[in-house]
């Protein structure tokens, strides 16, 4: 099987996953969504009619007015296609098509910082912040991890190796969000160095916004790095230990090449494929975990948006955010596949 064929197959699977997730989401919230939409339609029309004084006075008695309103509501529901349940093929197809073209509709309660209730605007505003926080964290974690892991691998069973491994196992046992709470407790209240809420108070349009955002980002960033780098170092160490036992390394050693050069140039290069794959996967994994982490730190990104949308049951936002989160998740998995092929020629030639 060629690598291209493999990638195509993966891409098709990914698309299938995206559709399946979307379908499950719609199936789970569809019935609720219809009820809410119908309610808002009837509310809308009642308001329209009662605001129209001339129209109201043209009716002789309240019964007639009521009948008129009922008819109007029925017409609107039919014109919106709400008379059919959400699972009819046309409505399902339409809903999927709309979402695929990034038309998520309008949020019921939530708005973006600039006041727009268009779900697309809200997501476009929050997404960069989540990417900023989590890619920065992943970058720092992986650099630290690779550095520490290499040191540990070059001195197997030394003190530094044991400390790294121990720290890795212990740190990965704590939930990130719990460590987040502790960090807020320590560095926002006991020693008030950083703000407890990661949302900057000044408005988005202010020129100082970015600086303020970065300052507010410190605490969540430190937490993510603290929890992440240990297990990374451990992972890198394990990959490297495997590579360092291979024959070509022994040959290089025999040729008298500097140990550091062997480690960083040759061993690391050969351990790169699995490391890069896990890196891409961990990035996607952290995006999922962002929901709780951002809720704890009140970081104004996708995760908190999702959390808020769930707590007020703002369904268009939930569907939109699930779609975008899933898409990002899948893109990073796909990226992992591509990178693996790029770094490991054996996969390409298979």
């Amino acid at each position: 099987m060629g690598f291209k064929k493999y990638l195509v197959k993966r891409a098709i699977t990914m698309f299938g996953v995206l559709m399946a997730t979307l379908l499950i989401t719609i199936a789970l919230v569809g019935a609720n969504m219809d009820a809410i939409l119908k309610q808002s339609v009837s509310l809308d029309i009642r308001q329209q009619v009662t605001n129209n004084k001339a129209l109201v006075s043209s009716f002789k008695n309240p019964e007639q007015l009521d009948l008129y309103i009922q008819n109007q509501i029925k017409q609107r529901i039919i014109s919106l296609g709400l008379d059919q349940p959400w699972y009819t093929p046309q409505r399902l197809g339409l809903a999927m098509y709309k979402i695929l073209t990034l038309d998520f509709g309008h949020a019921k309660f939530l708005t973006s910082d600039t006041g727009s209730s268009d779900v697309k605007d809200i997501i476009l505003e929050k997404l960069p912040r989540t990417i900023l926080l989590f890619t920065t964290a992943t970058a720092i974690v992986s650099l630290l991890g690779i550095f520490l892991g290499s040191i540990a691998a070059s001195k197997v069973n030394s003190k530094i190796d044991k400390i790294t491994s121990g720290f890795a196992i212990v740190s990965s046992s704590f939930p990130v969000w719990w460590v987040g709470i502790i960090m807020i407790f320590l560095f926002a209240f006991v020693y008030p160095i950083f703000p407890a809420r990661a949302t900057p108070e000044i408005s988005v349009t202010d020129p100082g916004y970015l600086t303020s955002l970065l300052y507010h980002m410190t605490l969540p960033l430190v937490t993510l790095v603290l929890i992440g780098f240990g297990s990374w170092a451990y992972l890198v160490r394990n990959f490297l230990v495997g590579v360092l036992q291979e024959d070509f390394i022994t040959a290089k050693r025999a040729a008298g090449i500097d140990e550091k050069k062997i480690l960083y140039r040759h061993a690391l290069k050969n351990a790169a494929p699995p490391i890069v794959t896990v890196l891409a996967l961990s990035l996607s994994g952290s995006l999922g975990g962002a929901i709780i982490t951002e809720a704890v730190f009140d970081w104004p990104g996708m995760g908190r948006l999702y959390y808020e949308a769930i707590s007020v049951l703002d369904l268009p936002v939930i569907i939109g955010a699930t779609y975008v989160l899933t898409a990002f998740f899948l893109v990073s998995i796909f990226l992992a596949d591509v990178l693996y092929g790029y770094f490991d020629p054996r996969v390409r030639r298979q």
Binding site: T13, A20, T25, L287, I310, T326
Partner: peptide, 23 residues
């Protein structure tokens, strides 16, 4: 295995949240 792939690539936490809220 394709079915397995699909479940494997689904973002678990968002779906878990939706399941917990709706079901």
């Amino acid at each position: 295995m394709r079915f397995n792939d699909i479940i494997y690539a689904m973002p678990a936490l968002p779906l878990l949240i939706i399941l917990a809220v709706t079901i």
